[in-house]
Design a protein around this nucleic acid. Sequence first.
DNA 1: TCGGGGGTAGACTGGCCAGTCTAAATCCGG
DNA 2: CCGGATTTAGACTGGCCAGTCTACCCCCGA
Lengths: 202, 202
Amino acid sequence: MNHPAPPPPGNRERLLLAARELFLEQGYDASVDAIISRAGVARQTFYNHFQNKESLFVEAVRCCVADVIAPLHVNPGKMRDSLLAFAIGYRKRALSAEGVAIYRTLISQVQRFPDLIRELSGQGDGQMIGSLAIFLRQAMNDGQLREADDVLAAELLLAMLLGQERNQRLLGVERPELDELTLVGQVIDGFLRMYAPARRAS
Amino acid sequence: MNHPAPPPPGNRERLLLAARELFLEQGYDASVDAIISRAGVARQTFYNHFQNKESLFVEAVRCCVADVIAPLHVNPGKMRDSLLAFAIGYRKRALSAEGVAIYRTLISQVQRFPDLIRELSGQGDGQMIGSLAIFLRQAMNDGQLREADDVLAAELLLAMLLGQERNQRLLGVERPELDELTLVGQVIDGFLRMYAPARRAS
DNA sequence: TCGGGGGTAGACTGGCCAGTCTAAATCCGG
DNA sequence: CCGGATTTAGACTGGCCAGTCTACCCCCGA
């Protein structure tokens, strides 16, 4: 029989890629058969590279999250402009089809992989809140923003930036897709009003 | 053999109750065996009352959502007090263990029951946004709040009220549990600052 | 030339599960 | 007292799936 054994290159990578796609589409229910089939690889090959389905899942999810997480630092400069640039970048990632899918996959596997998911959650939104809070702290010290709880401020801003949009996408609801820049601008302006330095009493 | 067939009363209700508990705990993966076992009912009895597992799920989830949804109307009165009362009620429901569990269950079954979930999503946060927006519209017309997009304002307030808290609970992250009233007060005050009537130019 | 590492296809095991079916038991109305 | 409706326990089917195993193949280095 002709069993064409092509160069044995990145079989592992092909498996990982296929797994990422399928886990994001179907969650952990994606079957090993489906994964190896999409990777174009034999069953045994899969078990040569990974201990079992769980460990593949862990690795695949880690990759996905790493991609979406990548640092998103807040540039100092004119307050409104910095926040606006940050906001647009944040929304782009958090609301991307991939970002939402990862989120959904993680949420549905909290029971099975509680530790992994807590870890990734800390790396994700956790770090995002942290770096934003540091930026806001600085602005508060400069007197550009009113003195307040910096972490809370960061959480509120991030929450407003996504609004109901991520939740709706998690639930499969489509959105009319309105003007991104206008929307984000309104949120940022609102936030700046909310944290404008207190007017000194007469 | 003694097969004690006790009074055949609310078997259906017992099944529904067991299903609600298990679906919220384990999602759709909860097996029919587990459900009938918790309900203390025979396998066939289940199929006497429900067509199949899917229809039980649909009915159980509908019940759960109905419980969490129950109207939450905004009372007119002093703006800050009304919003505060509303906010506390909203958080109580949306952040309750049950509320979070339903949310998680719905999110993980978007693929299987897309229509059901879109429907429930509209009844849930959808209505919440709507009624809050109406209240805010009124306040804007009265001049208590600045003129703005009422729906957006409602979405932003709701988003801030949950902050990162629901997301974290969805992912199984525990929170230090700080002072509810203080927190909500800060958010409401911030929101009121954000939508305070614009100061007329000199 | 030969042997082993990694590959392929596909059969197979064991487990779980949804849904059906049987046979016997209980209750209730007529 | 009888008969139908509902219940029970438990066997059974058919399907899916994770993971193992067999048998064969191909390339490359010793």
